[in-house]
Design a protein around this nucleic acid. Structure first.
Lengths: 246, 246
DNA sequence: CCCCCTAAAGGTCATCTTGACTAAAAACTA
DNA sequence: TAGTTTTTAGTCAAGATGACCTTTAGGGGG
């Protein structure tokens, strides 16, 4: 804070929470981890995982702790970044609660679920979660929508898409990440040209993987670059707002 | 919030504030509005304007209120967006204070300062504010640095640069905004080609303005577009992190 | 063993955009 | 009228992109 006023009457104390939008790709589809609320308010409804920030705990640490609790994975390589904060009065009927939302991206690992909180947690297609109006508790629909938009945009100008992949991965796997998040089909040939020529986006391992059908695919690791320039252009159909099918 | 745990012992209440990074262009230079703190902590040091979020007040409203108080301008057209939140324990010696930082962009109007708080407020070159280590109170240096980076990036793919201009404005004025924020010189001819051909970025008024020297410049208004695609590419020199001169 | 199917990988080509430059236009000044 | 200054208009080569075609390298079926 910083203002000079300090009149106690004018402001209040608030609870601070972190909420997580954890995305993954399952079955060529973007999915989000949701939990079923056990108690009021919004008992029985679906919600983003999250919880109170503890005493003396940095916000980012709280987010990482919740992420580990919910997904059972504490891998530092999981992508975790702050999305934005939501603090409208009335967003939580119990009182003034300001939440700092985080966006997490992870590959679809076999889910070594070790979570404590992970009672009724499960992956839900994002499209599905957003389609059913008011299916989410609190203002989590707005948060999810913002997270989706941020993820879509980030794929354009950064290399985070690799956060969805298990190394080593193929160019096609990476392309399917883009297709799932953007909700559109991309030209395989042009996509390959773009990502393989982008500096330090991908690092060839020299190995190749034989699939059920088709020519064996070369395998890659993440390169050192975080940014993609020029960006990968997202076709208009999905460039603003929702997916076509939404 | 959303987690199911509610054990009172584990979490605490926090004060919630908003802090504003208000940028403007003065004398072809990017400047930020800073106030001098009147009391402890950090008495006498410079800080970002801000204050407590009031009871029942939405975060964005609190930011807009502070902006009006500090700059005396309540123009809805002023650009105001959430930057991110900062809540590390220890960032405020008085206790747990989570601040939601906002980024505001405004033209250098004659400053009809009607502020209540604006006691010792003043514009400071961003370069200067960041150059003097520890010249800012709290973690405001980090916030300012993040705000600068966000502003620089936003100029690339959006049309917000016009938020620094008073309508009607010339292409050169707009170019000087980019030059001030990015800290580099741009080719006038190529810049003009880019912004005038970008769809709905600028709207010609048909008028022209005669200056002290040189050919009269055509005048423009903001167009309807919010996004710029393809983006305006920022030359490498300033593309990562700090300005050369920093 | 050969042919077909599939997906990866490589190539072509017209179109756009960009950066670096050159040059013309339109005002004022000396 | 010549010189200065800033805006505005080209030119041109290099690079990126989208649409599309072809080749490669596997497996499987007949």
């Amino acid at each position: 804070m910083s203002g000079q006023r300090d009149r106690r009457a004018e402001h209040e104390q608030a609870s601070v929470t972190v909420d997580l939008v954890i995305f993954t790709i399952r079955g060529d589809e973007l999915q989000v981890l949701l939990i079923e609320r056990g108690k009021e308010p919004f008992a029985g409804m679906q919600a983003l995982p999250g919880g109170y920030v503890r005493i003396g705990e940095p916000l980012h640490d709280a987010a990482r702790r919740e992420l580990a609790e919910e997904t059972g994975v504490d891998d530092r390589r999981l992508h975790l970044e702050q999305l934005r904060s939501y603090g409208n009065p009335g967003r939580d009927p119990r009182g003034r609660v300001v939440t700092v939302a985080y966006l997490a991206l992870r590959p679809d690992l076999p889910t070594p679920r070790a979570g404590t909180d992970a009672s009724a947690a499960g992956w839900v297609p994002v499209e599905e979660a957003l389609a059913e109006a008011d299916s989410l508790a609190f203002d989590h629909e707005v948060i999810l929508q913002d997270a989706l938009e941020k993820a879509r945009t980030k794929l354009e100008y950064t290399t985070v898409a690799t956060a969805f992949c298990v190394e080593p991965f193929t160019v096609s796997e990476l392309r399917r990440v883009y297709e799932a998040v953007w909700g559109i089909a991309l030209d395989p040939s042009n996509f390959r040209r773009k990502v393989t020529r982008a500096e330090d986006f991908l690092e060839a391992t020299g190995e190749r993987r034989i699939l059920d059908a088709g020519r064996p695919a070369a395998l890659y690791r993440r390169g050192g670059a975080a940014l993609l320039s020029p960006p990968l252009h997202r076709p208009e159909d999905a460039s603003r707002g929702r997916l076509l099918s939404f």
